[in-house]
Amino acid sequence: MKVVFERPQALSDVTTHYCPGCTHGIIHRLVAETIDELGILERTIGVASVGCSVLAYDYLECDWQQAAHGRAPAVATGIKRALPDSIVFTYQGDGDLASIGTAEIIHAANRGEAITVIYVNNTNYGMTGGQMAPTTLVGQVTTTSPRGRDTKEAGYPLRMAEMLATLKGVNYLARVAVNSPANIMKAKRAIKQAFTVQVEDGGFALVEVLSTCPTNWRLDPVEALKWLDDNMIPYYPLAEFKVSGEVK
């Protein structure tokens, strides 16, 4: 018998701080598999953001910089401009990218910065205790929308992928989910494509990954997979929005 599945080399051999069933760990592994398969570990620099994934620098074996809240695309811009031959990616949550960091992500995308963005959307601020995010679904209860998100007060959930797809500077843009083995395999292909674009000097690439947050959703991890399917995917459809700079 041969080994057909094991921990990728780029994934650190440690226990993560993530809650049981949190799918951040799956997304980390997909990024690590991609780094291994493209053979880019020695020239990859990750940019960790603020939120649950702030400690991502402990979990992937590449060089890292830890960025201020929302500023990862700016930090990545500085690294890539200083070292154009490096492979630079950010790993950001929805509070980070879709709220406090909207200016930085829009302008990095619009400049066509040759970086890869992994954008993890779990509809809330996980690290700080499950507060409402710009991505929180209408009616969704969080610790700061205790009666459910009210559009009169808080507007509508932001579809970042669709917004960013309008920008000429974007080469590749997809939304995927990691709530089933089939979706995980599609997510892997999108993440690998988003890094390949950079390896081939194609410009800006972003993958929005729908992810679960069992703890703050007050669901067990298995129920959380289904909640994502039933509630997130209808509002955040899975698709490749841009491929090779062309709107799909």
Binding site: V47, Q65, A67, R71, V75, T77, G78, A82, A103, E104
Partner: peptide
């Protein structure tokens, strides 16, 4: 796009 972005781009490039 802003002074906020500029100083964070400095962070990235200086760190590199």
């Amino acid at each position: 796009e802003s002074e906020v972005a500029a100083i964070n781009i400095v962070y990235g490039a200086a760190g590199a």
